[in-house]
Design a binder for these strands. Structure first.
Lengths: 338, 338
DNA sequence: CTGAAAGCGCTAACAC
DNA sequence: GTGTTAGCGCTTTCAG
């Protein structure tokens, strides 16, 4: 049997209301009463029962984080950032992975029993798209992450993808590269990370007066190292020549960089590489990888902050907001000449 | 206001007990009653209130997973495996990171408010050691992971470290390597992953009649890519010569391999590498990294299973158990000759 | 400033 | 087979 408010109240010689007041820092309590109560709490090692508190208050103190896959370094680092931001505010985080990109599965997780007990949800959209925005009008407070749905029915936090990609491409152009591969495109995608990053790429070429060559745009299904390696093998086999690669994430870049080097080309001398995400690994690859830092901590801070605002606000009282982080070009060896 | 058992009962024209019976698959219910209830549940989209259920039953349906750091690929992959194993059994997982190796901080997390509401804890020990085993005699069901505490007051699941390291070392010896670096030792550590893996290394040398050279044992503080790279730089600067490396985890191996290649040595021709953990990245490094697969899924399965047994058993009724997984040598390019 | 008491939604004796 | 009912521990309204 665990210690309850009653036990503390009895030991301190007060009522449970007073104990509750002390716990919640209710201001009007006589100092000596507070002392007595705190002493009793310490002596009994009292811990509030969170289920009871949750039942009574309607709040669990937990938020959900729905991400594609923890084994993906980007999302592991995002989860870490979200947990840090949440703990600062006394919340705990329930992580849920959705695995493959299946709309139905994703919606089920969003509405499923596991997200039942959280006060709000941070959802990094993967399978759903702009056309599904309507499905997100759920009663649980929700903040969207990622680049699949803009101007949806609720808040959205992401990085400026077009700017980031333009920055990355300009960086390679400034090195004198002219035949730059865009690695990681998704056919016919306009919105979504792939679509937006392709747009930034084309904008940068255009601004620099470098002709856009469709054969330099490489479509890739998933964004893992494996896919980057495969796509690069196919590209090289097809005989296309290039002297720079803007990869739409770091994993793709690392996979592709490996294949390029295997083929005897030097990085950055023969081919310069830049990625997206600034995952830890980019600091230790051979060579280290230049990348766009998306401002992960800022994403987490703003998203958790907004989610909390929604949790305490009247439903419907906060109009949907959009936040884009400050990004940063991180130059490393893959674009630096000795 | 959300839907409660009462609402469902009213719509179905039965009592809440009957609804509860249906939900819990209580066997003796007339089929048509069950139908009516299920229809009402579906119509109202009823979801049980987990706080109320938790309060009443004393179970939250959640287990805690305490790990050092999600950004560490090994633990991200472990978390993934644990979530998979837990979901199979209808549990959700609350992940908690402990950050640096601080005993006090670690104990606080273990006893802290966030682990308050879970039914049991999976704890991958980092800072605590064998001498602290007594501190783990807590009332919450607990299963230990990692290699810091053996034969503690509760169940423990891990890989056979000595065997794994012996296997790895034998593999390099079988390639004809004689000057094999042991990378990742911790000074004076006997138990713990570093101590055990060093023992496996020395055992393999001894069995093969290869002299043990203390200068080939490289101490490393942390086990990140960065530390592997630094340690390798220092080792090479000191002029020690070697033709193989048994790294005590994959990250160390990857960091060190990079430095070796930077210096113009070829892997595996000049130096063969093998790591521990079989993290995803080892499939995509240049060259791909041979490693010891610790049986992560098995660790997760056994640990979650045992934890559940402890949760449903009388406290103290289950004697502490030890489980060692089946391991596997995974040979990749870093130890393969064309 | 502190106490009494109602009730959050659910489970599980116990009745019928 | 199904209904009644007593709390689980906490927050909070309302008195005093």
């Amino acid at each position: 049997m665990s210690i309850t408010l009653h036990d503390v109240a009895r030991l301190a010689g007060v009522s449970i209301k007073t104990v509750s007041n002390v716990i919640h820092d209710y201001p009007h309590i006589r100092p000596d009463t507070r002392e007595k109560v705190l002493a009793a709490i310490a002596e009994l090692d009292y811990r509030p029962n969170l289920s009871a508190r949750g039942l009574r208050s309607g709040r669990s103190g937990a938020i959900g984080l729905i991400i594609p896959d923890l084994r993906n370094a980007y999302f592991a680092e995002l989860a870490d950032a979200v947990m840090t931001a949440a703990h600062k505010r006394g919340l705990y985080v329930l992580i849920e992975q959705m695995g493959g990109a299946d709309k139905q599965a994703e919606l089920e997780i969003l509405r499923g029993p596991r997200m039942q007990m959280v006060d709000g949800i941070l959802y990094s959209v993967l399978a759903l798209g702009q056309e599904d925005a309507g499905l997100l009008d759920i009663s649980t407070p929700l903040v969207l992450l990622g680049d699949r749905i803009y101007n949806g029915p609720t808040d959205h936090v992401t990085m400026p993808n077009v700017d980031g990609s333009r920055l990355a491409t300009e960086h390679l152009l400034s090195l004198g590269r002219q035949r730059i591969l865009a690695l990681g495109a998704h056919e016919d995608e306009v919105i979504g990370s792939a679509g937006l990053r392709l747009r930034g790429y084309t904008e940068a070429l255009e601004a620099a007066g470098v002709p856009f060559r469709p054969e330099l745009v490489v479509n890739v299904g998933n964004w893992h190292r494996f896919d980057g390696a495969e796509a690069m093998r196919a590209t090289m086999a097809s005989g296309i020549s290039f002297d720079g690669v803007v990869a739409f994430n770091d994993s793709l870049a690392l996979g592709a960089m490996r294949v390029v080097q295997e083929a005897g080309l030097r990085v950055p001398d023969d081919v310069a590489f830049i990625g997206f995400d600034d995952i830890d690994e980019t600091r230790y690859s051979l060579p280290t990888l230049s990348t766009i830092d998306p401002g992960r901590a800022e994403i987490a801070e703003v998203a958790v902050g907004w989610l909390l605002e929604r949790i305490s606000a009247e439903p419907g009282s906060i109009a949907p907001r959009e936040h884009e982080t400050a990004i940063r070009l991180v130059q490393r060896e893959s674009t630096t000449f000795a």
